[in-house]
Structures are given as structure tokens and as C-alpha cells.
């Protein structure tokens, strides 16, 4: 292909990857006074292939499966057919997106998103006059 088309090629590669389909990783989410904790199962994703993005109101988790498969392996049965995980969550106003903490171990991602100061529960003292 002509060199002038270089940028176009990358773009279409990007679209091809986008169209490939993604798996929705199963998650557990719970909330307590300190904020939201999320666990996501991303088996087969090495640390360097995991991306966590916080843009505007959305938190996006993306991961690419990378298995040490020998070149001559022929698959006979596959329950994991796709090689990418992706899932997005909307955060809402009361979470502090600047302080997202992430841990990733044995294919499980743990995210903690604290509540913004203004949204933390406050105990209101009731004084009897």
C-alpha cells in the first residue's frame, strides 16, 4: 500500500480491533462510608496489559488477554473466545475520581474509589436547647 495511506491504515486497524468484540468481566461492587470498592475478574491479563481510565464521568477498565500459548497449539474447545475485556461504569458526583486506588493480583482487580469530602456522611449533632 502507498505510504501516504499510513495514517489511514492505523485507523482501520484500530477499528478492526474495536469491532473484534470484548468480554464483559464479572464484577462485585460494594459501598461503605469510605467509598466504593470494586472487584473485577480479568484472568489472563498481565499487569502491563491492564488500563484503567477515568474520563469525565466514566470509569473504564480494559484488559488484553496474553497467554503463553505455543505456536503449534490447535484449540479443540474454547470457552474464552475473545482476547479483550472491557467494562465502563458511570461514577456520579459524590466520588473522588482523583483518588482511585488500584491493586491487581492473580487476575483480580481491586479498585477503591473514595467519596468526595463533600459527600462523606456527616453526623449531625442535635442539641436540645
Amino acid at each position: 500500500m502507498a505510504n501516504s495511506n499510513d495514517t489511514k491504515i492505523t485507523k482501520s486497524d484500530e477499528t478492526a480491533r474495536y469491532d473484534e468484540g470484548r468480554m464483559l468481566p464479572p464484577v462485585d461492587v460494594f459501598e461503605d462510608a469510605s467509598g466504593i470498592t470494586l472487584y473485577a475478574d480479568l484472568p489472563g491479563v498481565p499487569k502491563d496489559k491492564l488500563t484503567i481510565r477515568v474520563e469525565a464521568d466514566a470509569l473504564t477498565i480494559e484488559g488484553e488477554v496474553s497467554l503463553p500459548v505455543a505456536a503449534n497449539v490447535e484449540a479443540s474447545h474454547a470457552e474464552v473466545n475473545l482476547s479483550r475485556y472491557q467494562r465502563a461504569f458511570s461514577l456520579g458526583q459524590e466520588l473522588d475520581r482523583e483518588k482511585v486506588a488500584a491493586e491487581f493480583k492473580n487476575g483480580v482487580l481491586k479498585l477503591h474509589i473514595p467519596k468526595a469530602e463533600h459527600a462523606k456522611p456527616r453526623k449531625v449533632e442535635v442539641r436540645v436547647a
Binding site: D41, H77, V80
Partner: peptide, 25 residues
């Protein structure tokens, strides 16, 4: 299907390769 862990199975002329997707163990 739909079990945990998900399994991928493949083979080469001299081995059988099994991958079980079992995170967090």
C-alpha cells in the same frame, strides 16, 4: 459451559494444553 473456571483446551502433536481461567485463587 457457564462453569467456573472457564476452560480452553488445545493440543499439539506431543501434548495436551488446558487453560483454566480461575482468577483470585
Amino acid at each position: 459451559r457457564n462453569g467456573f473456571p472457564a476452560l480452553n483446551i488445545g493440543g499439539t502433536p506431543d501434548s495436551v494444553e488446558i487453560y483454566a481461567f480461575a482468577p483470585g485463587l
